[in-house]
């Protein structure tokens, strides 16, 4: 089942630095999709287009169509200026490369998205805190100090907190932009394990920080090079049996 359908998507930044050309790809529901490729290929830009965070950047033009098929049967035209971006961002959540915890307590970070959406009931907020921390494999480590500042956590814990923060809102799609690039191997494997666990309930789009990570977690993989989608394939196919020479060179480590 397709969760997000991207058709003929173009994007140009004002300074012309980075752009995406004619991207067409379907993102399957309840699976991990991986966007890989060398830096500057446009993976992050595409990721940010999916919840309109590009609105905050200096974008000169976008065209094409990106549609999100909601669990309630509703279709959202993501690029439509009339689309309620706040509601969209609650459905499509983002985890960034650098773990940025908000200057609040651990609990405050987790309930932030729900509170700004207008949720006030303490019991529901409390349930969301525990559930999301369990899913991000952080509950045992922090359950006794939920009211301490989030900044006091270690880098790996902070990134799992960021993942939990997204999960707390129960979005339908979770975007992860090189979420483990600054983490040690143990924290990285904890994050990857969490992703494997939650993928049955969420659509996950990941920009991995290495080809190895991509190969480990991908149910579906797409290779981007200089603003173009070179090839997309399910599961390990892209790594074992790439059809394009450039993909092969990249996954075998000849460049990038």
């Amino acid at each position: 089942m397709v969760k997000i359908s991207i058709e003929h998507f173009h994007l140009t930044y004002s300074d012309g630095a980075e752009s995406l050309r004619d991207i067409t790809i379907d993102i399957p529901a309840r699976a991990i999709s991986v966007f890989l490729g060398p830096a500057g290929g446009g993976k992050s830009s595409l990721l940010r287009a999916l919840n309109r965070l590009n609105d905050l950047a200096d974008v000169r033009s976008v065209s094409g169509q990106i549609r999100l098929f909601g669990d309630n049967g509703q279709t959202i035209d993501i690029l439509d200026p009339q689309t309620d971006v706040v509601a969209l961002r609650r459905l499509v959540s983002m985890v960034f490369a650098r773990p940025v915890t908000l200057p609040l307590s651990i609990r405050g970070n987790l309930t932030y998205g729900l509170e700004v959406a207008g949720m006030r009931q303490n019991n529901l907020l409390g349930e969301a805190v525990e559930r999301s921390l369990q899913q991000a494999a952080l509950w045992e480590e922090v359950k006794d100090r939920l009211d301490e500042p989030a900044a006091a956590l270690s880098g790996g814990q902070q990134q799992r907190l960021c993942l939990a923060r997204s999960l707390a809102m129960q979005p339908e799609v979770i975007l992860l932009d090189e979420p483990t690039s600054g983490l040690d191997p143990i924290s990285t494997s904890k994050v990857e394990a969490s992703l494997q666990e939650i993928k049955n309930n969420y659509t996950i789009v990941l920009v991995p920080h290495s080809v190895q990570q991509a190969a480990r977690v991908a149910d579906h993989a797409a290779f981007f090079l200089q603003g173009e989608l070179i090839e997309a394939a399910p599961g390990p196919n892209l790594f074992i049996n790439p059809t394009d020479k450039r993909t092969q060179d990249y996954v075998e480590g000849r460049f990038g």
């Binding site: 309620d84 706040v86 609650r90 207008g118 809102m169």
Partner: peptide, 9 residues
């Protein structure tokens, strides 16, 4: 999730 977008806006 229930969202009171219109009031908010």
């Amino acid at each position: 999730m229930k969202i009171f977008i219109s009031q908010l806006f």
